[in-house]
Design a protein around this nucleic acid. Sequence first.
DNA 1: CGTTATCTGTCAAGAACTGTCACAACCGAG
DNA 2: CTCGGTTGTGACAGTTCTTGACAGATAACG
Lengths: 285, 285
Amino acid sequence: MTAADEHDAEHGDAEHGDAEHGDAEHGDSLTARDLAPQRRARIRAIVESRRAARLEELSVALGVSQATVRRDLDELEAEGLVRRVHGGVIAVDERTGEPHFEVKAAEAAEEKERIAARAVAMLAPDDTVYLDSGSTVLAAARLLRGWDRLTVVTNSLPAIVELAGRGPRLIVIGGEFRATSQALVGPLSQHLLQNIHVATAFIGSYAVSLDDGLTTTDPAEAFTKKLALERASQVVLLADSRKMGEHSFVHAGQLESVDVLVTDTGIDEGIVRSLERRGITVIKA
Amino acid sequence: MTAADEHDAEHGDAEHGDAEHGDAEHGDSLTARDLAPQRRARIRAIVESRRAARLEELSVALGVSQATVRRDLDELEAEGLVRRVHGGVIAVDERTGEPHFEVKAAEAAEEKERIAARAVAMLAPDDTVYLDSGSTVLAAARLLRGWDRLTVVTNSLPAIVELAGRGPRLIVIGGEFRATSQALVGPLSQHLLQNIHVATAFIGSYAVSLDDGLTTTDPAEAFTKKLALERASQVVLLADSRKMGEHSFVHAGQLESVDVLVTDTGIDEGIVRSLERRGITVIKA
DNA sequence: CGTTATCTGTCAAGAACTGTCACAACCGAG
DNA sequence: CTCGGTTGTGACAGTTCTTGACAGATAACG
């Protein structure tokens, strides 16, 4: 191993020396061979364009021996520009790791679950309920597994997947799929929605304020949410206390449409009184 | 996105003598074998697109021995990217991280995939296409990943899950969820469906007969299928040859509504002639 | 002009990869 | 429950790839 270190160190010095030599160029155009930095640039270009290359190919393409290519690749790998594998080299991008980043769900899971459970307790076994998008409402959806006399209407893809074939009769409103909220929203959702009516709607909201009512970040989302509010006899808003008093971009419903708010114990008492004055029953789970 | 390289082609044997010490000065490397990471990436792609694969298939597709495939699968399983089962390998759901179909779902998969590929080849990048329920159409849906200028309208839950957030604009018709077909069907589906129109519809069918046209097992399913047929300028029927000549319970559409049939080479020539006499273009994939 | 340092190609030993084989484990049919 | 065919496992051998050492070649420096 010490031998290897020594070798690498020498190699490093060589690198610098060569670079310096680079700007003192003699116009020696007769050299049939690339200088080392040029050669490495060509290797990078080849590897990047093809995503991978085998030693043999590079050796032929550059007109040098495989040993030289190896040394170049060692250097390039040390700089993190490529990744050596048995038999050749692959571009760094091609790593097989896990690129997903969608794991914020477990955040306030426990709180959401208490809220969800309290809301679900309001349902009768043979009710018809609308489930909006959003993580808190999704938690409620999970609790409805096995309720085989229930009818669920929803626009939330996770809720659909959660309940598909697992008890409740499942009705999906149509619409355009929006990736951010994983829900079906927009003008197209009105066609089916206008033809149905549900006893209870579980609504989630990005933000709730006394002045602006329900607000959310996306117009299409707001459109569908508003429509859903109108199609329910009883509207139950599921929102943890951090969402209270906040407001977002687009108006998504009047506070007057809401009959019940299920939230957590962290809610401000002043807000509770204001809401109750407006005829909203507040339940702290 | 993922370099969908299809540089298979020449895996005759190309193993032994020919790639000797640097004599191949004919530029291109015709006999290039995949590097191990490339090979594993291809295995992932195949398994993911089909949900499952048998060892034999992978071995043939990649041009390596089954032993090598096994070792690769061991590696991939250790990384949690696939799950090995007796006889082959199944994909793991990226979201939930757990199982999917059975290996035997991949039995006729190759045939379905060829049909699907042939059908997809008929689409333009910015088309609007309706995807019906059914496994063959689902295979087509998988091929549409990354088509980010396409608009997809569908009633198939697996198709939705497959395409959600992965390229195409996704529009879901509403309706009642039917577990057997994993699709949204029934009268409620008409409300949105009646308000849209698509250039092309990919339709699956449980059975196709010259006398009864398209038939299926469920009335609600039939209702929605019929409606979808009317909303498309061009109707493409995807059905393997075993479905030809069969008939099921409920009428789900006239043969006259169909413009193109994409099927496999096993179809009876007499049936082909009858269909073509009726103005249907028959494509054998 | 000679010396020195670096770079490059060749070589041999060792490691890694792949395919083949024999045998154990498993599955479905009767 | 047994049986026959299929699939998985471990060991082996052949091949390819890598590593480190060495020697010749090239260019910089005094």
